[in-house]
Structure formats: structure tokens, C-alpha cells
């Protein structure tokens, strides 16, 4: 069977649509933006360095984009994603999930997590990163991937290298000191549209 044959047999997908302004806030009640706690009231913590990322999503006018639903996805500190094919991987951290979501009322967010790592075996060239999916009013789902500005591994990352050099800094989570408990803090600004727009990726065409 040729490639085009396979393609023509595929079902036509249902169109994605906007989130609208009224995604029910309560549907996020069981979701957490603290990935260092696998559930509430548990003493165990994941391996790795705990970090806090303060971020925001802005529109073409530099205004905060209120009401977005944000989904975060990352590896553990050993560079392993918690996917079914990694279930028995020795470096899978049973105390880390790596998936967070939140509806931001005003466009700001705070993600408390573990700094994602690199796995030499599975994805040696991938620099530590966090995938971010944004659902919003006025637009279908958009996805991007964020990196840490101080990582030397960024240089060889195939995704970063595929983005024009002058745009790469827009994908960088920046150092922002530490909080009063000594936890390293970072910041990132996502610009949905306009001159300083964050690069977004096409996960349908690729």
C-alpha cells in the first residue's frame, strides 16, 4: 500500500474549536500545579531539584490573556516521561507524574515542579524542556516547548536548532533568583501573537 493510500483511508478529524471564555473552573479541582506532590498529604517527594516557574500568557497588545487552560508536560529529573512505554524503565520516578494543568483566571501562572533532566540512552540530544499546551477563547489549541536559559545542552537540542536563532530566546525560561525558602525561581512570558510572539509548533503537520 502506498503512503497516499494509507492517508486516504484515514478518517477526517473532528475540528478543534476554541475553549470559549467559560471553561468550568471546577473541572480543574483535581488538577495540581505542584508536581512535587503526587497527591496531597504525602511525605514522599520526587527526585531532583525543586523549582518554581512564574509565568504569564499575553495577547498581541501585551495584555494578560485571561481564562486560558494551560497544560504542562515534562520528564522527571532523569529525562524520563511517564508514558506507558516507560512504565518499567528503571529511571521512572514513581513519585513524579509530569503532567499539570490549570485554568488561569488572569493570565498568570505558577508551576512548582522538578527541573526536567536528560536521559543519555533515550534522548541524549534533548535539552531539559517543558511542553506547554494553551487552550483559549478565540483560538484552537496551540503548543510550544520551553527550555532553560542556562543549559549548555540547549546547543544540541534538535527542536531548538530547528527554530531560527533569533527566536530561540523566546522559548527560554529565565533565572529569577530564589524564594525565601531557597528554592530556585524562574520566569517566562508567553506572547500569543504579534511582534514578539512566542514560537508555536505544528503537531498536526509534523
Amino acid at each position: 500500500m502506498t503512503h497516499s493510500n494509507i492517508k486516504s483511508n484515514l478518517l477526517t478529524p473532528t475540528n478543534e474549536d476554541t475553549l470559549g471564555p467559560y471553561y468550568p473552573i471546577s473541572l480543574c479541582d483535581n488538577d495540581s500545579m505542584d508536581l512535587t506532590k503526587i497527591r496531597s498529604g504525602i511525605i514522599n517527594e520526587p527526585k531532583g531539584e525543586k523549582i518554581i516557574i512564574n509565568g504569564c500568557v499575553k495577547d498581541i497588545n501585551g495584555e494578560l490573556a485571561n481564562g486560558c487552560l494551560l497544560e504542562f508536560w515534562q520528564t522527571n529529573s532523569d529525562g524520563i516521561y511517564r508514558t506507558p512505554d516507560n512504565e518499567t524503565h528503571p529511571d521512572l520516578d514513581p513519585w513524579f507524574i509530569g503532567y499539570a494543568r490549570n485554568r488561569t483566571p488572569d493570565g498568570n501562572f505558577t508551576l512548582t515542579t522538578i527541573k526536567p533532566g536528560i536521559n543519555e540512552e533515550l534522548n541524549a540530544k534533548r535539552a531539559p524542556n517543558i511542553t506547554l499546551t494553551i487552550f483559549s477563547d478565540g483560538i484552537m489549541r496551540v503548543v510550544t516547548q520551553l527550555f532553560f536559559e542556562d543549559e549548555s545542552s540547549n546547543e544540541n537540542d534538535p527542536l531548538l536548532r530547528s527554530v531560527p536563532e533569533e527566536l530561540r530566546s523566546r522559548l527560554m525560561i529565565k533565572n529569577d533568583g530564589q524564594n525565601e525558602e531557597g528554592i530556585k525561581t524562574y520566569k517566562i512570558e508567553i506572547i500569543m501573537a504579534g511582534e514578539k510572539e512566542t514560537p508555536f509548533f505544528d503537531d498536526f503537520a509534523s
Binding site: 534522548n123 516547548q145 527542536l159 530547528s162 508555536f200 509548533f201 505544528d202
Partner: peptide, 8 residues
């Protein structure tokens, strides 16, 4: 939108 390399 930017295309995603296979390895990523």
C-alpha cells in the same frame, strides 16, 4: 507554526 523535527 514551526514543524517539529522527528527526534522531538
Amino acid at each position: 507554526l514551526h514543524l517539529i523535527p522527528d527526534s522531538a
